[in-house]
Amino acid sequence: MKITATKATPVNMPLEIPFWWTAGYYPGTSKTIIEVETDQGIIGLGEAPSVDVVETIRAMGEVLVGMDPIEIAACEKKCVPAWQIVQNTDDSSVVKAFGGIEIALWDIRGKAWDQPLYKLLGGAVRKEIPFTEYFAFRPEIDGKGGENSPQAVADYCQQMAEDHGSSFFEGKLILGDPELEIDTVKAIRERLGKSAMIRLDSNMQWSLSTARHILREIAPYSIRNYEDPVATFEEMAQLRQHSSIPFSTHMPDIRRIVALGGVPDNIVTNFAVLGGIGRAQRFIGACEAMGIGFWCYSGDTGICTAAYLHMVAATQWMHEPSQSLFRWQYIDVIEGGPFRQTGNVIPVPEGPGLGVTLDRETLARMHADICDNGPVDHFHDPARPGQFRRLPLN
């Protein structure tokens, strides 16, 4: 089998309602959908986490023409410089670009061998994959959203528990007011009871002194994890002296974590960011050896989500639920998408490869959106038009 072409299609994936995060409104994401075509008619699907790598993916695709897609390591060698050079250049675009392609190569392998991806990764240790529900402060638009107070956020979480059997929750309580965050955590815990999982994510919102205050106040409410409460690993290490709540980060720097005595406790990222499924497996193995937790972040299309499902199915160390915005996503590039959890879990797909099929009509709509409107802007603040929000807040 030979690779004949690679397509890279940038898309917008808007949410039904934007929510507040540290840099402003978060209205959705922009992704790159990848199709690797072969001379046997098999097409592998992949996804890159941004659209700044479209031209790099297309250039790599030209290099890969004539290569055997089953020979993933050989394909990587064609496209990615030696790893120490990649790190030295401080440019992650080549890693993200090939990481998205590499997911498609695994999809081809599974389709060629008529096996679901999780079997190629070693077989399943679980078939139902856990994800969190998401909560945040959101404006009200056309009768949807409107969670702008502690009670409104708690009402929303309770509704998810009643409607979908959800007991795993994660969210951002980001409006620049530490007392509002504290009050909202209290309201959620009181509403959901003792057994529900609550994780928080401030996107580096707080100064060290404010974070100390918040963590002290929310400690009695059994917070499972707090993601990036402050701006640096070093500040998290100082914060650890005042709190036993575990921390996580989107920055996959194991060496710094080990050097700082195991802070943060967990890494939350995307497989393409790590260079693909193969490198993600090795990275997660290193996390396991160092006692560092690992789960996947939210906001992807169904292609990358399917990769998460298969990897978690085959990886015992990935026992914590991954993040999800599934309930707020109303459009997806896969048939039957977006995924939706029931009772906290989604079953791993059993079809060959990733087990998902591209919805070409919806792909065209999502591509037209980015052509007409440009990539999604994560840094718009209605209160400060034309100005980025600053970090950290005191």
Rank of each mutant, 00 (worst) to 15 (best):
L175R: 15
A237F: 07
L393S: 13
P150Y: 01
T357I: 04
P264S: 09
I3F: 13
N394E: 02
S222L: 04
F283N: 01
T342H: 12
M13S: 07
I277P: 10
S207W: 01
N12Y: 10
S243N: 12
R389D: 11
M13D: 07
I188L: 14
D201S: 02
D265P: 01
D201L: 00
R279H: 12
I70F: 09
N266F: 08
F379C: 08
S202H: 13
P150K: 10
I103N: 03
T32E: 00
A187C: 09
A161V: 03
K144Y: 07
D381N: 15
N88K: 10
Q159F: 06
D369S: 15
D381R: 01
I292G: 02
D68A: 03
T22M: 11
V153C: 15
E140Q: 09
A211Y: 08
G100C: 00
G110E: 06
I57L: 04
M290L: 09
R191M: 00
A307T: 01
L309W: 10
S92K: 04
K119R: 13
F271T: 07
F388T: 10
I129W: 11
H310F: 07
V312E: 13
E128C: 11
H242E: 10
G146S: 12
V65P: 00
Q341S: 12
V80L: 14
T9L: 05
T89A: 11
H319M: 03
T4H: 13
F135A: 03
C75E: 03
K7C: 03
N148P: 01
R240G: 14
T269F: 15
I254N: 00
F247H: 00
A289K: 09
I218F: 13
P321D: 06
A272C: 08
E190L: 05
I214E: 14
G123Q: 14
E235D: 10
D142L: 04
E140Y: 01
R216E: 15
E190R: 08
D332K: 05
V63C: 09
